[in-house]
Computed example of a mutant assay.
Amino acid sequence: MKYIGFILFTVLTNAAAQLMLKYGMVQLGPLSFASVNPILKILQIVFSPWVFLGLSTFVISMASHLYVLSKVELSFAYPFLSLAYVAVAAFAYVMFREDLNAFRIAGIGFICIGTVLIAQSGGSHAETTTPETVKTSELAR
């Protein structure tokens, strides 16, 4: 549980990156590769300010996630990323007026319940590392 802060930072930066990418793509308008060189269009997309900021935020999120993976079990850390969907759905509703119907709200509730259950399970490497797993990992090198 001591790495929850890093896990939540990963979740929030992941969600923020999604929102920035969406905002950037809305600013660019509908994509059309018909009249423009596709490589130039891709460069225009990647280097538009909000898309670039979103991609940069993804890099920060992934660096944080890699740190988390070095400290806790993957089966513990990875499900927390589903909380990014919760944040994205809520902010997309507010920022982009996206639909948040009863089925999505129920799904968000299930995601939250599942994440709470997983959080109760612990999940640091120190709790589960045995001499056998250390020997196996040394053999893999």
Rank of each mutant, 00 (worst) to 15 (best):
A87R: 04
F52V: 01
V116F: 10
L53G: 09
L8K: 12
G122P: 02
A92R: 09
I118R: 12
L40N: 11
F52K: 01
M95D: 08
L83T: 00
I4V: 14
Y67V: 04
Y3G: 07
S121E: 06
I39F: 09
D99M: 13
A15M: 03
W50K: 04
Q120N: 10
F80E: 12
S32M: 04
I113S: 03
Y85V: 07
M20D: 06
A90M: 13
G24R: 02
E132I: 12
G107Q: 03
S124R: 13
L19E: 04
P49L: 03
S121W: 02
F103L: 11
Q120P: 03
D99E: 14
V59S: 11
E98V: 01
S137T: 12
I45A: 00
S137I: 12
Q18R: 10
L28R: 05
E138M: 08
Y3C: 06
I111E: 11
L139R: 13
A15Q: 04
F76H: 15
L12F: 14
K135N: 09
F80N: 09
Y67E: 08
A77F: 02
V51R: 02
T57S: 04
I111C: 04
I118E: 10
T115F: 05
M1S: 12
A92G: 07
P49C: 02
R141E: 12
I108L: 10
P30Y: 09
A17Y: 03
L12S: 14
V46E: 01
L31T: 08
S75G: 05
Q120V: 00
T129G: 02
A92L: 06
R104V: 12
A63H: 14
P49N: 02
T133S: 13
K135V: 11
K41H: 13
K22A: 00
E138S: 05
F47M: 05
P30T: 11
I105F: 07
A77S: 12
F110A: 03
A126K: 14
L69W: 09
I105V: 13
P79D: 06
H125N: 10
H125K: 14
L31G: 06
L40M: 10
N14P: 06
F76W: 14
S32Q: 07
L31K: 07
F47T: 10
I39A: 12
Q120E: 08
G109Q: 05
T129F: 08
R141P: 00
I42D: 01
L100F: 02
F58M: 13
R97M: 08
S137V: 10
G123A: 01
V134L: 11
W50V: 05
S61Y: 07
L21F: 02
